[in-house]
Amino acid sequence: MIKYILKKLKHLLITLFGVSLLSFFLLRLIPGDPVMLLLGERGADPKIYKEMKVSLGLDKSIPVQYISFLKKAFQGDLGKSIISKQSVVQEFKDRFPATLELSMIAMIFALILGIPLGVIAAVKKNTWVDYVISSVSLIGYSMPIFWWALILMLIFSLNFMVTPVSGRISVLYDVDPWSGFLLIDTLTKESFSQYGFSAFWDAFRHLILPSFALGTIPLALISRMTRGSMLDVLNESYMRTAKSKGLSFYRIIFIHGLKNALIPIITVAGLIFGGLITGAILTETIFSWPGIGKWLVTSINARDYPVIQASTLFIATIIVLLNNFVDIMYAAINPKLRIK
């Protein structure tokens, strides 16, 4: 097993090298000079323009820039943002908890609703219940997030005024980041003594709409997968045996059926979670959620090369790690895979 994990780690390094190489060179293919972007309409005399290029390290040839980037990356230095002049690693650390918190809540929402809906649709196969659930799933899956998020905002924030419009917590709460997860930070001794539960409640209310918007597609996917997987399981002989033994409906469906049907769903859920962490760009933009998705978009618009390179690497690492985790879990369950 250890050998298998080491092999996977070796693959991870090769993948990351490939990602760094691709992201670095593809980035240079995007038209746009970051110095011109900084200068704007004002322009600058050629001497100052050149000085700025030198100070940003953009005067050297692209391969030289890449080697210098790699050297520093091996020492844990991914550079500084051209715009904020802050360490890219620090910027990532500041933003990642926000994305992780949102993705986790969205995932929990998708699982809690998606699995029961899928089970119901499978059990009530070809009835109106199944048709309704399947149609809603299809609509949920095809819904453009940008539109959906705005609709949610209009209904719940503007008309019913039950959820806040955007952000992570009301600006009236001055909560110091400790873990970066506001649901935890609002319960620290310092924050709790100042605000009681109200800060936690406010942070929770801020999570409702973004996690609902972000979790809609995974919810649709999970419910459809559960339905399919359950239908396969329901036709298995052990299900018939369970029925003939006179077990209760609940035991047959949830203990014998769902337990077996969940294996492929959990695998997919792992991959979906990776997608959520890295794909919350639209949700984060609309809800002014200060996570890595929004950070990446802003950096691309500003041609902030160090941030784009580093964030691409971070995102690739997360995806590859999650994929490898799923593979390792599979291998743990099925020893045949380890031999392969």
């Binding site: 705005l150 905002m153 955007s166 600006v171 609309i286 002014s288 929004k294």
Partner: peptide, 20 residues
Amino acid sequence: LVFSITPEPNVRFLKLKVGE
């Protein structure tokens, strides 16, 4: 004084409307 950073103009409008 608090600057609440809200890049989307339509979201800023909604926030103003609900008093945020």
